[in-house]
């Protein structure tokens, strides 16, 4: 598989030279339940927010300071009105998600899986970040941890994550 098959050359250059953090080990928790008994939540880096209720991610600061990206997150409720979900993210083609949010944030598909009993429960709360965060310190030390704690408190067993 070619990770850069469709990306323009500048994206390939940036991603190949990005100073990724290096991890020696990887957390791994075997799933202790059947899928049909699991509570599931969605997490994306697609830059989603709920218009009129939440602030967009800070694109103005990102433009002024390209070494910075907004590391905060937004809670997207499962019953959100789809037309209120907007995107603040400058680095991917949003036309597909705008037409059908399930391309990146498949709330409808997971509702169907819940209705069919293939998963136990679709959580009330789901989470979005925006994926351009060159300096990851605040994400790792604060906002990522906050979302992990929320998911733990909400007794989520399984997270379906989609990048953008």
């Amino acid at each position: 598989m070619d990770s850069f098959r469709f990306t323009p050359p500048y994206v390939e250059i940036v991603m190949k030279h990005f100073p990724y953090l290096h991890y020696e080990t990887c957390p791994f928790t075997p799933l202790s339940k059947e899928l049909k008994d699991c509570k599931v939540a969605l997490v994306t880096t697609g830059g989603l927010y709920v218009e009129g209720e939440q602030k967009p991610y800070d694109m103005e600061r990102e433009i002024k300071d390209p070494g910075w990206g907004d590391p905060t997150y937004r809670i997207i409720p499962r019953n959100v009105s789809k037309d209120k979900v907007k995107i603040a993210h400058r680095h991917y083609n949003k036309s597909g998600v705008r037409k059908d949010i399930n391309v990146l944030f498949p709330l409808d598909r997971f509702t169907e899986l819940e209705n069919r009993g293939e998963i136990g429960l679709l959580s009330q709360n789901h989470y979005s970040f925006q994926g351009n965060i060159p300096n990851t310190q605040d994400l790792i030390l604060r906002f990522g941890v906050e979302v992990a704690i929320r998911l733990h408190i909400e007794k989520v067993d399984l997270v379906f994550m989609t990048p953008a």
Binding site: M1, D2, R5, F6, T7, V11, G46, Y92, N93, K94, S95, G96, V97, K99, D100, N102, V103, L104, P106, R109, T162, P163, A164
Partner: peptide
């Protein structure tokens, strides 16, 4: 191997998603 932003495929393709 999908374009970035089209993780689960094309809009409206319920089965593919």
């Amino acid at each position: 191997e999908h374009p970035f932003g089209f993780t689960l495929g094309k809009p409206g393709d319920r089965e593919g998603q």
